[in-house]
Design a protein around this nucleic acid. Structure first.
Lengths: 213, 213
DNA sequence: CTTAAGAAAAGTGTCGACAATCGACCTTAT
DNA sequence: ATAAGGTCGATTGTCGACACTTTTCTTAAG
């Protein structure tokens, strides 16, 4: 990944921290982020903070109104629908496009991730389970080979991660979550574009849609 | 300067200027952009220039390597294929999604744009023709109602505009360009999702694909 | 000549300070 | 009591300066 080649800039580092803080709920949704405060807290210049906020803004994790300030995004149901719609579109496209690149090795890698998920399912550790889920999807997307789609998905995924954090309150069964993923894996095994496309859409709808009554 | 109207930040303003400069070929593809030079040229601080460059980077109009500098993007054929692929995906989705919102008024608006295109076609003014083409597509996309898709398309469109500027060297017939657009309009009139989806994909392929032998 | 090492120049990353703007509070006249 | 208008503190927008990295130039040895 490009991030490993070029050591992250200070701004990206701060953005990572902030993102995690949001995920951990140390920062509330809708909360206002004040540059000078953050500047002091992270012990970097306000300028660097602004860089970080711009990254988060690109990911739609924060919204900033000129001369008003920047606030942590509050996702409405309409927002989630938009995100899911976009994710579904991009992901089904990328998955189908990745099919030709799925060989022995790739399936083994994916199976390993699935295996890890099974463990985490037994241990009931939601956050790890989500991370693995994202890893699984990202792995396939990367095989699609369209760098712009990959980059786009990266930013969608940040939002998805935020969404899944909400989900754990509503989504009761770890096992069902795992089973769903397994079915997706099986769909990939068929290497049939129509099957995969169909499965992706129902998968996303199943995993995420049920929250949006 | 007395830009009292300026809702846009100084950075965005500079980004606009730079974008145009690239389109006008006042700045070459692949050229290195030096912050301090631009800072002097536009008479703003280097910090503001950095903001502008970040915007352009988001649009993929420039590429910047940490501590190395930022360069105007040089699009390879592979890049164009990626862009066209992504455009095709996003646009066919958005067009179909916009169908229910297409009423009397909307068709009239579109017809007017088409009319303008006809004029420009006769006058053989490529750049205006392209602008109208983009306006047409954007109009429909906006009706799709998914703000994330709209935002995504905005950034794709900047690249498309750059592409079309290349195209005019290879694309000889103004009339054919107009006729294609007219067919797209007719497809919309049917309000049939399958027809529209199909037409969008062939339209984009036709207009842009032929350049990529 | 070619190449390597090191000095100088150029350019980017980061910082603290000042200016412009916004929002809350207070005053005052109806 | 309330609404228009003014004042002040808080916060963002913009700037110039310095630190550090990369590139270029110089020069001397092989």
């Amino acid at each position: 990944m490009s991030r490993l080649i070029a050591k992250e800039s200070l701004g990206e580092l701060v953005a990572d921290q902030l993102r995690r803080s949001i995920w951990k709920r140390e920062i509330e949704f809708g909360e206002r982020l004040i540059e000078s405060e953050l500047s002091e807290k992270f012990d970097v210049s306000r300028n660097t903070i602004r860089d970080a906020l711009k990254i988060l803004e690109y990911e739609e994790m924060v919204v900033s109104k000129p001369r008003k300030g920047t606030y942590v995004s509050q996702f409405s149901k309409a927002d989630w629908q938009e995100i899911i719609e976009l994710r579904s579109l991009v992901e089904s496209f990328a998955f189908v496009k990745a099919l030709p690149s799925l060989g022995e090795k790739q399936f083994q890698d994916l199976e390993r991730i699935l295996q890890d998920m099974k463990e985490k399912t037994e241990k009931q550790i939601w956050s790890d389970l989500f991370d693995l889920d994202m890893k699984f999807h990202q792995y396939v997307i990367n095989l699609s080979g369209n760098s712009r789609v990959i980059k786009l998905y990266d930013s969608i995924q940040v939002q998805i991660r935020t969404f899944l954090l909400y989900l754990d309150k509503y989504y009761s069964s770890h096992e069902a979550f795992y089973e769903e993923q397994k079915e997706l894996f099986d769909a990939l095994l068929t290497k049939d574009p129509v099957v995969v496309d169909e499965k992706i859409r129902t998968h996303i709808e199943y995993v995420e849609g049920q929250f949006l009554g």
